[in-house]
Design a binder for these strands. Sequence first.
DNA 1: TTGAATTTAGAACAAATGTACTAAATTTCA
DNA 2: TGAAATTTAGTACATTTGTTCTAAATTCAA
Lengths: 194, 194
Amino acid sequence: MDTKEKILAAALKLYNSKGINTTTRHIAASMSISAGNLHYHYKHTDDIIRTLYEKLEAEFDGLMGNVQEEGEMSLATLNRSFGQSFQVLYKYRFIFLHFVEIGTRVPDIRNAYHQLVKRREAEFKALFYQLAAAGVFRKDIPDEIWSALVTQIFIVNDYWLSMNEMTDRLKGKEAAAAYQQLVNALLYPYLAKP
Amino acid sequence: MDTKEKILAAALKLYNSKGINTTTRHIAASMSISAGNLHYHYKHTDDIIRTLYEKLEAEFDGLMGNVQEEGEMSLATLNRSFGQSFQVLYKYRFIFLHFVEIGTRVPDIRNAYHQLVKRREAEFKALFYQLAAAGVFRKDIPDEIWSALVTQIFIVNDYWLSMNEMTDRLKGKEAAAAYQQLVNALLYPYLAKP
DNA sequence: TTGAATTTAGAACAAATGTACTAAATTTCA
DNA sequence: TGAAATTTAGTACATTTGTTCTAAATTCAA
């Protein structure tokens, strides 16, 4: 039955392993259905990519919801939430490995991402001020620096996978560990008492 | 004469403006020569991309040479050299906007880049230790944090353009200014006396 | 159970693309 | 100047790709 879901799963697997130039024929063949059938469920290739991006955003929103319910924010919870978000990044890694091309091909995705970033920027900045007030972060950091830190975090988040792909090519757990260490280090010089 | 150079210039312009899916027919048409002629000079499309990448690396090496000749290193020279390197990044921006795809299509490029990163990592770390010794940077930063900072700088360097393309889409001078501010902010919390 | 709706496979089509081939034009240089 | 080398335009071809179409098969519902 839910062929539509199976198509998404097969597409995600192939996009992650073979890149964004994977064709609908390849996807269909990989799950032993016809290309005609695939296009019955998703008229355009980009519809598949758009749907996968929507699932990604939904998973991120789910994570963010969890974090905010958790009550008070500590450095430990922040780090844990980076770890969880990496799992999502990695699951949908083909999107980040080909982000500009996907954003150009599917403008809906670019627009949605643009809005997502704007939303998250405010949340993160508020969080940092909270942690500074709580004595976890330094109190002598000017506002523009906090803003810049948020952007740095986003860039490292969304493009660490690309850098990794072009250099060390760590996989799975090793990738997660290297990423986690890098994000931790990003916050280190802002700590009130290192 | 020098049709080979003209092809590179036309290709760079089109890749930057239309993306990596630009075809040899488009490139040839944009400079009013035949596709046959273009392929006489560059047998394979990827040869053009490879050559452009080589020029990029050469320009970077040129910059690094300048910096090292300049004698003692200050925060001001470091910042100036970031500014210059942005000009090169921007000139060849299509490479960074489609880095993973290019690296996959042309393994030579991925390998060359991998080596470049390893080389630069050592240079940057030495530089930071030098600036810490000179009292510009803090002396209480552990070694892994300096290593992480170098990686952060590389990611921001190589992928700021992608982030910009997916969000604000700043061009020219505005792009350069936003980039410069972000890199400056990256170093801020490491300063001995902010 | 039977008729309608849905799903499927497979063929077919048009556009795009990289590149090879050929013959003409142009340049080089002895 | 005239032959050889280089450069150029244009055509042609094979492949790939997204998508549509048709008819058969399957599922669903009354």
